[in-house]
Amino acid sequence: MNDNDFKKMILNLQSNEITGREIYRSISENIKDPHNKSLLIEIAEEELVHYSIYKKYTSEDVDPDKKKVMLYTILSKIFGYIFTIRLLEREEDRALEILRDPDIADSVLDTKAIREQEEEHEEKLISMLNEEKVSYISSIILGLNDALVEITGSLAGFTFALQNTRIIALSGLITGIAASLSMAFSQYLAEKSAGKHNYIKASLYTGITYFVTVLLLIMPFLFFPDNMYGAALAVTLFIVIIVIFIFTFYISIVKKVNFKQRFLEMLAISIGVTIFSFLLGIIAKKLLGIDI
């Protein structure tokens, strides 16, 4: 590696560190919990230390990437700071791979210290996993998974049996409201029986997640003409894939689970139930001789 390439790479690492510092500081300003706030500020200052180490080799100052800082700050407000920090840490892990390059490791003597400090970040971050969104993630998963499987399956069955988008939407909405209330009360009783203190919030997260998912799934049937029930179902299935993709990505970042395995598993269950329910709708219509 020539001197110009080496300097360019170190400048890039230097930029990542100062940008990371500004992101941590920006996120910390929106956190009320004193422990989490102080922890983020501490990590931000470590990033500044790493920045100073790289500066010894470049003899240049680098400005933070303001667009990136703004993006991560917005993400923290939408998806929560745990998700955003984990996403940032994953990006920093890629930087660690660069630091393991023999050419850089031999040239930058302080890389071992930087790697050790970077790896400690994740251990520290584990202690701050007490954000409400993350604390109730199991309740959200329960509501989302059940809604995706049950309502998608119901809509598929209704599609062939009823063959009218308005009637399908109405049937799906009634089924969804009843199911969301049932899920919320079931979660309430389960959490309370287990002796957990926040059983009311847990049940609300489950019920609300279920109901919001129901609204997303029946939406195509409200917009398509009465006779375009097949197209409405196709759009609903597309929404199912998008919802599963986004939620699985969120879980894979926050809980550090395998994205591909989790995504394919959820998708296979949802699509499998949909196909079965669609066939069931065909059989039920023929057996009962109902023509709507």
Rank of each mutant, 00 (worst) to 15 (best):
T73H: 13
I31E: 12
E132N: 12
L88N: 05
L129I: 04
A44L: 06
F249Y: 07
T213N: 13
I282K: 11
L280Y: 01
D226L: 05
I137E: 05
Y229V: 09
F83K: 03
A178M: 12
L109H: 01
A178V: 11
S127Q: 07
A178C: 13
A190S: 15
M9T: 15
F278W: 15
G207I: 09
I27K: 00
R21T: 01
I251Q: 13
S193L: 12
T152P: 00
A95S: 12
I244F: 08
I114D: 00
K67T: 01
I41H: 04
N164A: 08
E150T: 11
N12E: 15
T159W: 00
L75F: 14
L75G: 06
D106P: 01
N227S: 08
T111D: 00
K133V: 14
I23G: 10
P102V: 13
I275H: 07
A190D: 10
I283Q: 12
D103N: 12
S135C: 03
K32R: 02
I269Q: 14
R262V: 07
I41A: 05
L75M: 10
S52H: 13
V69N: 01
E120W: 04
E132M: 11
R94P: 05
I23N: 01
L148W: 00
S277M: 14
R25K: 13
I239E: 13
K8W: 09
E191Y: 06
V254H: 03
S139V: 02
R21D: 08
E47N: 04
E119C: 05
D65V: 02
Y188H: 10
I290D: 03
R21Y: 08
I239D: 15
I10P: 00
V273G: 13
L144F: 06
E60I: 07
I174N: 04
M128H: 06
E116N: 03
L75A: 06
A44Q: 02
I239G: 07
S107T: 11
M1K: 05
G143D: 11
A268C: 09
I275L: 03
E42P: 01
E191P: 06
S193A: 12
L125R: 03
Y72P: 01
N198S: 12
L87N: 09
E116L: 08
N145S: 14
N258C: 09
L233I: 08
K256Y: 06
F245L: 09
S107P: 10
S154E: 09
L109Y: 04
E131L: 15
K56M: 14
L237A: 04
L148K: 03
I177Y: 03
F79D: 02
L279Q: 14
I137V: 09
E122T: 15
E132W: 10
E191T: 12
I275E: 14
M128K: 05
A232G: 15
L264G: 12
L148C: 11
S182W: 04
I43D: 05
D5P: 05
F245Q: 12
I31A: 15
K133C: 13
Y81V: 02
A268P: 03
F224A: 11
K112M: 00
